[in-house]
Amino acid sequence: MIMAHDEKSTNAKTGIVMIGHGEPEIFDEDVWLKGLREMFDEFRQTGLEVPPDDALPVMLMEIKDKYEAMGGKSRHAEVCRKQCELVAQHFPNYHVGIGFNEFIGPCFTEVAEEMIHEGVRHIAFVPMLQTDSTHTGEIRNKINALGLDSKEVQWIMSKPLFYRPEPTQLVINKIVEAAGKTPLEKVGVVLASHGEPDEWTRLCLENTRCKEQETAFCACVKKGLVEKGFVWDNIVQGFNEFTHPELPEAVETLADKNLRKVIVMPSFGSTDCMHVNYDIPTKAKSALVDPHVEIVCLGGWNDDPLIIKAYVELVKEALAKLFEDGDRRIQSQDT
């Protein structure tokens, strides 16, 4: 039981909406074309330069090639659904569903509206994301557009994974495992962050804290690895896009350290996806380093028990706050 309100009658009127980022499972030119145009429109609003429309066919071909390199399929949606299924096991009698923010359906707002139609009057929205970013800002705007207050539906949006300790421990565990029997002083680590344009931070677009939180997360991981015996100067942060040092640069900073192995670990994505399974390893392995140095690229966090625990705790915290605020509203109305 999470709290006193968690009786069956209350649970049955409470929804938990898990929100995945969204990525088409197979290459769909129309879906990607629409998504790229929407993304470029957002970039233009922030003053970022974007490719001209006549570059879109080339970009679509590159995306198609990435799918082919991944075996024709992105596992992102599949893993998100599995994560939701495992989280739901901790909340029996609640309405638990999953939707996506972009590219694929169902849209999370549709999932919420269906719950409301079925009688749900409390909803906890749970972004399946690592940081407070433009994506969490978009999600909050879409929730506000639902007009839930006018429908007498109380809601809350949980914090992202950054605020839980479990992802830090998971990343440390995976890197230690990948190091294997290689002497730790001969192991380099690149923590692969997503990155966001500095323009977004300066404009405070959707209150983004992505870059700041990614750096803080990597610092916590770095400290934990040093406590395990890794060398401080052999652990660096690199970015997949928008921000320097980009991944090839980050790997190359370790080139003169006489290492045997460099481990590249995603520090932002909780699922296998195009960034994790194609972009990061491709960019990392393009670095100009001694060919005798083994570059090991690790996958997504997926359904690791530590990630499921992180989501469960975020949901518990959100539900506690939701009902606490609800009680205050009722008390205010009674006085």
Rank of each mutant, 00 (worst) to 15 (best):
residue 134 T to K: 11
residue 72 G to K: 09
residue 308 I to P: 03
residue 157 M to I: 05
residue 79 V to P: 06
residue 150 S to M: 08
residue 87 V to A: 08
residue 80 C to K: 09
residue 222 K to P: 01
residue 327 D to H: 14
residue 60 L to K: 07
residue 24 P to N: 11
residue 325 D to M: 12
residue 273 C to A: 07
residue 162 F to Y: 14
residue 220 C to Y: 12
residue 275 H to Q: 15
residue 123 I to A: 04
residue 72 G to M: 09
residue 223 K to Y: 09
residue 129 L to T: 10
residue 188 G to M: 00
residue 272 D to F: 03
residue 204 C to Q: 15
residue 21 H to L: 09
residue 23 E to C: 11
residue 217 F to N: 11
residue 134 T to W: 08
residue 222 K to L: 03
residue 308 I to G: 06
residue 173 N to M: 08
residue 197 P to F: 07
residue 181 K to T: 13
residue 294 E to I: 02
residue 172 I to D: 01
residue 81 R to W: 07
residue 26 I to H: 15
residue 202 R to V: 01
residue 156 I to E: 04
residue 22 G to T: 00
residue 147 G to A: 01
residue 110 E to T: 13
residue 197 P to W: 10
residue 266 P to E: 12
residue 256 D to Q: 14
residue 250 A to S: 02
residue 242 F to I: 00
residue 307 I to C: 06
residue 131 T to Y: 14
residue 125 F to D: 03
residue 133 S to L: 03
residue 174 K to F: 00
residue 203 L to Q: 15
residue 217 F to K: 11
residue 316 K to D: 08
residue 91 F to Y: 09
residue 248 P to L: 10
residue 268 F to H: 13
residue 50 V to N: 06
residue 288 L to S: 11
residue 265 M to I: 06
residue 134 T to Y: 10
residue 2 I to C: 05
residue 52 P to V: 08
residue 238 G to E: 01
residue 144 N to P: 00
residue 286 S to N: 07
residue 124 A to E: 01
residue 242 F to C: 03
residue 230 F to V: 00
residue 240 N to P: 03
residue 149 D to H: 13
residue 291 P to V: 04
residue 85 E to R: 13
residue 266 P to R: 12
residue 34 K to F: 04
residue 191 L to M: 13
residue 269 G to P: 06
residue 234 N to F: 02
residue 1 M to Q: 08
residue 159 K to D: 13
residue 321 K to E: 14
residue 135 H to Q: 12
residue 47 G to W: 09
residue 133 S to F: 05
residue 217 F to I: 03
residue 244 H to F: 10
residue 102 E to F: 03
residue 76 H to L: 13
residue 4 A to C: 05
residue 139 I to P: 09
residue 96 V to W: 00
residue 56 L to M: 09
residue 110 E to A: 13
residue 178 A to M: 01
residue 281 P to Q: 14
residue 309 K to L: 10
residue 292 H to K: 15
residue 55 A to Y: 12
residue 112 A to S: 04
residue 335 T to P: 12
residue 276 V to N: 09
residue 328 R to K: 15
residue 57 P to M: 13
residue 229 G to Y: 03
residue 320 A to K: 14
residue 175 I to Y: 09
residue 30 D to F: 07
residue 18 M to W: 06
residue 277 N to S: 11
